[in-house]
């Protein structure tokens, strides 16, 4: 099975849940709240249309991508594992930002990425780890008066 087929299959499955469970919930919610009425097109019309389109096109995509060779898919080297690793790091970074603040979370994130992907010069890496988060934080704070999260530890 090609990657395109997997994508088509997964999105078709997800959109069935969307159409069968989530959209009707919006409809009943709207009834329950009684927040006004509408003429021919209501809050569920667009979700139904959009969901229906996803369903149709994922089925067509599933049906046609078998014949089409894999040349449409980027024949790129590289492990999915490494891709997942960076996504995990991103997620940890975003959550960590709330706990320990933007500054330290960014430094840890950079250090982890540099370590994981085997940076060649640790001197350059160390400079970046310290300066980039500090500069970003200071620019936003001083110039734009937008505070990034300080983290719960310092509040």
């Amino acid at each position: 099975m090609t990657a395109t087929r997997i994508l088509a299959f997964l999105s078709a499955a997800a959109i069935l849940v969307f159409l069968a469970v989530m959209v009707p919930a919006v409809g009943s919610n709207q009834m329950a709240m009684g927040s006004g009425d509408f003429y021919s097109v209501g809050p569920t019309a667009l979700p139904n249309l959009a969901g229906g389109m996803v369903l149709v096109f994922s089925i067509i995509m599933f049906a046609t991508s078998g014949r089409e060779a894999r040349d449409d898919e980027a024949a790129t080297p590289g492990g999915i594992g490494l891709a997942l690793a960076i996504v995990g790091l991103f997620a940890a970074y975003s959550l960590g930002m709330l706990a320990i603040g933007f500054l330290f979370a960014s430094m840890l994130f950079l250090a982890a990425v540099f370590w994981l992907y085997r940076v060649s010069s640790w001197i350059a890496a160390a400079v970046l780890i310290v300066t980039v988060p500090l500069v970003v934080d200071q620019i936003l704070r001083r110039l734009f008066l937008v505070p990034l999260p300080d983290g719960l530890l310092f509040n």
Partner: peptide, 23 residues
């Protein structure tokens, strides 16, 4: 296919006419 996914993502949020929350 890509466009219809974009359309689904755009339905998140409150309904523009009634304010009914969607997804």
């Amino acid at each position: 296919f890509s466009a219809s996914i974009g359309m689904v993502l755009a339905t998140v949020g409150s309904d523009p006419m009634l304010g009914t929350p969607r997804f």
